[in-house]
Design a protein around this nucleic acid. Structure first.
Lengths: 282, 282
DNA sequence: AGCCATCGATACCGCGCGGGTATCGATTCC
DNA sequence: GGAATCGATACCCGCGCGGTATCGATGGCT
């Protein structure tokens, strides 16, 4: 199976429309139809049910969609990491660390400072991304290592090292009735009247249905809270970047949040190993 | 990057010899040279240092060797799992579970019995493989789920569910001086005179250097112990398949062995989910 | 009911590229 | 110094990929 065929099939499976998929791939529709048909013949499997009005995935087709995406990510990762390895001998970008925009910045700063002091440390680029995008960044080679937050992020398929665990607090608009309390229970803040929990993107980029506002990063989130349109339960370290207009109250019965360092399992990079070592020594 | 190019490069990188690699790939040497050169040009990276007498990997080349193997495994997995998904609608092979030949068979039997009693259970093929091959089997799609034993096996890049934890025992030839003891300490059996620890294959198939005999599976191991040529520290469940000529003594200070069910992280199979559910309910 | 728009499949064509053979140039060993 | 080894180069052929033109089926609109 060639990556070209996989790319074609994934495009069609995502669009469920040969014409659109062909446009996305920058090619004409007929060769795309042929290529997918040929892939099916070679696999001996029907991947798509076509009528002239609709295209749907078969059982096998949805398996190949998931597996094919993973395989294409792996190929992309091979490409990117090879290129990076080549310039790393000559140039600079040693490691790329990805984390959610605006999360636990003091911990990260401490880690980077400690690592920079190590002998043989390389430069670490910090890449900020939206919620739930880190895993993808690691899998397709755009990043080498990530800061994840359990239980929100999934560490499926990654090697991890636990860094710290902290309780959670609720972030409210200043002046909210609960904002003067010493602490609140989780049940009190999950369904606050007029302050719904915001909806965060799922891994595929879509948003779940519901009443709350859609939120892509923490800047949006804080602004919405300050505007009195949302509330959020976040790790304690969110206090650090608290802006005026926001109040914070501990939520002792909320599940603890664990910050972990995560990286793809077969990494053999000395630089990454060094970073992990300094992280564990703290 | 096409999988064909990756396959070619991996072959050359493994053989470090264009002629042999070409023979392995069933093609002539010149087009192979050209294809690898073209890959280097497209990546903008030199992967191999060639003289007319030797071929060596560059830094970037060894990165691409590791990453490329992973990517090729992912593509193979996509192929195999798609084929399997297609026939699973019509035919039988529902899940393939892989475990080390001759390990914790009662636990496995119980799990399979419990799962078979579930509604909607599919048939589970059990695949036995040599030591350290399970991870590969999962990654390239030959198996859907594995029984692994921590801390011996690595669960890097896999989702896992803990099944049970047990102590370890040392297996000795019957009649060995230590075989009558109620228990022994780990230090007493790590360097037994005349009974070295056997050498097990590394993930790449080679064996570490050392004095002990090479061992691929537990049948070989038990035979070697009975012959008085080796000893081994194994989980308690090894008692179950004890043959005459062998003695077993607990080793309380040896690290506990945890048996885990492991599967590739992005599996979306209902059958696998069912198996994991029955495993966790025990 | 009939027409048309939509969409995937088919037919056909041209060229680029992958793979083959022959040969070269460099290095090493006897 | 000659021969053997090994990767690179030169050249050629045929397949396959991608293009355009068109067909056939389906569904909506009047």
């Amino acid at each position: 199976m060639e990556t070209r065929e996989l790319r074609y099939f994934v495009a069609v499976a995502e669009e469920l429309h040969f014409g659109r998929a062909a446009r996305r791939l920058g090619m004409a529709q007929p060769p795309l139809s042929r290529a997918v048909a040929q892939l099916e013949r070679r696999l001996g499997v029907t991947l798509l049910e076509r009528t002239s009005r609709s295209v749907t995935l078969t059982e096998a087709g949805s398996v190949l969609l998931a597996e094919g995406r993973a395989a294409l990510d792996a190929v992309d990762a091979a490409d990117r990491r090879t290129r990076r390895a080549a310039v790393s001998g000559t140039g600079d970008p040693g490691l790329v660390l990805v984390t959610k925009a605006g999360a636990s910045s003091e911990l990260l700063a401490k880690l980077l400072d400690a690592y920079a002091a190590e002998p043989g440390a390389v430069t670490v680029d910090v890449l900020l991304c939206g919620i739930g995008e880190q895993e993808r960044m690691l899998r397709d080679g755009r990043a080498d290592v990530a800061l994840l937050h359990l239980p929100f992020d999934s560490t499926a398929g990654l090697d991890t090292e636990e860094l710290c665990t902290e309780g959670q607090v609720v972030v409210l608009p200043a002046g909210h009735p609960l904002s003067t309390r010493a602490e609140v229970r989780l049940a009190e803040v999950t369904a606050l009247p007029g302050l719904p929990e915001p909806r965060r993107p799922r891994p595929d980029g879509t948003y779940p249905d519901g009443p709350g506002p859609q939120v892509r990063d923490s800047a949006q989130l804080y602004q919405l809270i300050a505007l009195g349109r949302a509330s959020a339960v976040l790790p304690e370290s969110a206090r650090a970047q608290l802006s005026p207009g926001l109040a914070v109250v501990p939520v002792p019965d909320a599940p603890a949040v664990t910050t972990v360092l995560a990286w793809p399992p077969h990494s053999r990079s000395r630089a990454l190993a060094g970073l992990v070592r300094t992280a564990t020594r703290r």
